[in-house]
Amino acid sequence: MSTSQNPLAATLAPVATPARDGVMLRILIVLGGFVAIAAVPIAFASSYQLFQLTLAATYAIAILGLNIVTGFNGQISLGHGAFYAVGAYTTAILMTHFDVPYWATLPIAAAICGVIGFGIGFPALRLGGLYLALTTFAVAVAVPQILKYKGVEDWTGGVQGTFLVKPDAPEFTGLDNDQYLYLFVLVIAALLFLMAANLLHSRIGRAMRSIRDNPIAAEAMGMDIARIKTRTFALSAAITGLAGALSAIAVEFVAPDSFSVELSINLFVGMVVGGVGSIVGPIFGGLFVVFVPNLAESIARAAPGVIYGVILILFLYLLPQGFAGFPRRIGALLRQRSQG
């Protein structure tokens, strides 16, 4: 879309046609990929495997949210687990206390997280990036304590947490509940990833990135940096909150200790490993966060954490582009080889 409106593309008319073909091809590939990702597990996976994939998709959404603020806007958040928690609890409370249908809780969860993100981001974003990292880290540490707080126990279920009921699949789909939920989460994930991709190629997306890469120039060009940063943070919090809401539905349970500082750190690790500032990176990140601990836990209870730490550090040293940067890295290596 943006290419056809681009005045440069109009003057380079002969080039524009193949470019559009490329876009069509890409859309076909993405659509085909989506159908495959949706259909194959529904046809072949066990209900537990489907549950894990559903979780991976919610983590992918959460990491996408984090990547928008950290990867694309350069604002480091170590506390996105807090928004995940708020989203999850919003859905849990709305479903159990107000009988709101599961799908209707999602926009409310996103909106609440967006507002909170705006409120937290506002004081910290005006200062250097480390202040935001510190504040969000503090939020992540404090969240379980707030969720356990006796004053709100009637709503949150306190230390015990709250159980939810998994939604039934509509009959016309012919799917069981796990299959339906997987498809539901997958569709939402696809929509969010498309939206994020569009956003990042829009004018606002370019502004976000130029603030990350060259804040002084961005300011000189008249961008209202604090405004763009706080809004980006709010959007990012809303997306991660939505992921939390989906996870509550999928897990059918929320409790304070599922939202400890480890959750925020896991999202951060998932982002780095998937690829900082990459659209597809969070998909790898989501899969990593769900499946690597499962593999590692067979070694020892503490092993996933140690392995996470080691992998995180190794990626930062050796592959700062994450999994998403892998093909490009290999391509560059091959080109070097063939040239020299």
């Binding site: 750190i265 690790v269 780095v272 503490a302 954490g305 996470y308 730490g309 995180l312 550090i313």
Partner: peptide, 20 residues
């Protein structure tokens, strides 16, 4: 970001190594 990442990595390694 890379430096924060290394600190977080250290945090993970130390915390879980202690548990281990």
């Amino acid at each position: 970001l890379a430096n924060v990442g290394v600190f977080i990595g250290l945090l993970l390694v130390f915390r879980n190594a202690m548990g281990w």
